[in-house]
Design a protein around this nucleic acid. Structure first.
Lengths: 304, 304
DNA sequence: AAATTGTTTTTTCACGATAAAAGACATTAC
DNA sequence: GTAATGTCTTTTATCGTGAAAAAACAATTT
């Protein structure tokens, strides 16, 4: 099957939004920059838009003829990257299904089950291995380490080290640094969400990620910044399968964020540390509370 | 060409060492365990040994007929893993050649130059990306970030955080923990090397790695333990192309290690921290001294 | 002349295929 | 009856291939 054209389809859907808003589309290179794809893909999109009667395309002239209907869009399933498909499948097995530690992963079988080639699955597993949940035996299978209490503790330990350091670095940023403006923006978004917490309390996790990434970036350390990928991945999937008490959790986290932001703006290192510690502590508790295998931790940890 | 039989060749060479030392070889499963390969490979090895007249093989009986000659061994080039070949090639370009930051990596071209398939190279790059030296543009090329002063500073920053924490954890290990015995063993090896520093001063880096890995393991944190891979990789290649002042460096490091070991054995946290800090500081200086682009650091760091 | 469009070349992504290596099962030897 | 050997099956490592997407180059247009 070689390669799916999801890049084209996904960009096409986004291009439809542009069609909704304008009478005539900009030049090909401009569209490419706007959609984040190459001109080759832009031209494929324009060609189809002409075919379906959405636009009239003649060289520089790209006039919108009609508003896009619902059926003009490609279905969501077709716009996903292969690695996104694999990732979702894999995480579902890992978190939802009964994936015990020590279980081994069969590339061929798993690729067949998900319906992808072995190469793609292999590449996913290699990329995924940095999250510390799987390990490769040379010339042999992968071993699942399991989403255990020990894992959560190790993850949060690093997170706390990194975030405390990043927060301290944030305080030291000169006043002119754009990060301060970003922080102000995030504060506003927090207040807006606080006011509307009843309706859109699920929007929090996206805001949460942006806030923590901003703090981590202040460290100016690629290893710290990159490590947030691990945290984001875990929290993302974790919350997707664990909705109990979500609203309560988010309300608490939101107010902790606001205190944390206020502390950062005060530039008082002691206050920042306290606010950061408090928030991380409750994040840790939330994560731990959701892991079934209690008592397992000591065993895992002392097994060297 | 599908797959090279380097596993077989490498295991064969190691099996020759056993032939040198024994009159008759053990059972197939035992040999497999000894060489770390499957019985399939063991049997292939035995088959060849019989063919070349090294042994007489009849079911359980595997009698050694003659001592292996030099020409019985497979040449070293043939025993390397593909990923080792790729790694060496890549690191040579990165450290020795003029690999400026921002330069882009072409999978196809590089694969051709090294003489491997694109899949293998891709997988290597994905694995390598966690070292923070390259970055992928989606649906496009990889970008080289360069082995810059900024990189070295970011790397050592994390290293120091992790090692200080691990060393502190080491102090708290109960007296019965096998790590203490391992530490004693390493101390002996250090003393032996100290006595013979004149002859085998290049053997230090291997000892260095084992020592630091032992310390890191005390953290009981997979992210800390895994991070040492990054450090080991950098130091390994770095020293391979930078032999100036090696002996002096190693002599200093050796005595610092001994002080560090003594501190750990004293279990005095303050003393451990001091010894650890001192050693890490000189390791950092050594690394920084070897990077050509001075003054670059500020520019890199403040570029957000 | 600079930017845009038209055309061609290259590169990435993903697959199936194949030999090496591992693993499973059946048989024999002690 | 346990542990070895003999045989067969499955899985991994690697490549070549082909379509999607990017990038480079050439020809227009304003």
């Amino acid at each position: 099957m070689s390669k799916s054209n999801n890049v084209y389809k996904e960009a096409y859907n986004r291009a439809l939004r542009l069609v909704e808003e304008t009478r005539r589309l900009p030049s090909e290179p401009e569209l490419g920059a706007l959609l984040g794809v190459s001109r080759t893909t832009v031209r494929a999109i324009l060609a189809r838009m002409e075919e379906t009667g959405l636009i009239l395309w003649n060289k520089r002239d790209k006039t919108v003829l009609r508003a896009p209907q619902h059926r003009d869009f490609f279905p969501d399933e077709e716009t996903d990257t292969l690695s996104q498909i694999i990732e979702r499948n894999f995480m579902r097995r890992l978190l939802a299904g009964g994936a015990e530690a020590g279980m081994q992963i069969n590339e061929l079988e798993m690729a067949r089950e998900i319906g992808v080639g072995t190469t793609s699955l292999r590449e996913f597993l290699i990329r995924f291995s940095r999250f510390g949940l799987i390990e490769k035996r040379r010339n042999s299978h992968w071993v699942l380490k399991g989403f255990t209490r020990a894992f959560a503790l190790e993850l949060t330990e690093i997170r706390e080290m990194f975030e405390l350091r990043s927060a301290a670095a944030f305080c030291r940023l000169p006043p002119g640094n754009p990060a301060w403006a970003e922080l102000d923006g995030l504060e506003v978004e927090h207040r807006e969400l606080e006011a509307a917490i009843a309706e859109r309390f699920t929007a929090f996790s996206e805001l949460d990620e942006r806030f923590h990434r901003l703090v981590h970036r202040a460290s100016h350390n690629r290893f710290i910044v990159d490590f947030y990928d691990v945290i984001a991945m875990i929290f993302h999937y974790h919350y997707q399968w664990n909705k109990v008490g979500e609203r309560q959790r988010n309300t608490v986290a939101l107010s902790e964020h606001l205190a944390y932001i206020a502390a950062l703006k005060s530039r008082d290192p002691a206050r920042v540390e306290a606010a950061c510690r408090k928030h991380l502590e409750s994040a840790r508790q939330t994560l731990l509370a959701s892991i079934p295998d209690c008592g397992q931790a000591e065993a895992d940890n002392s097994a060297k």
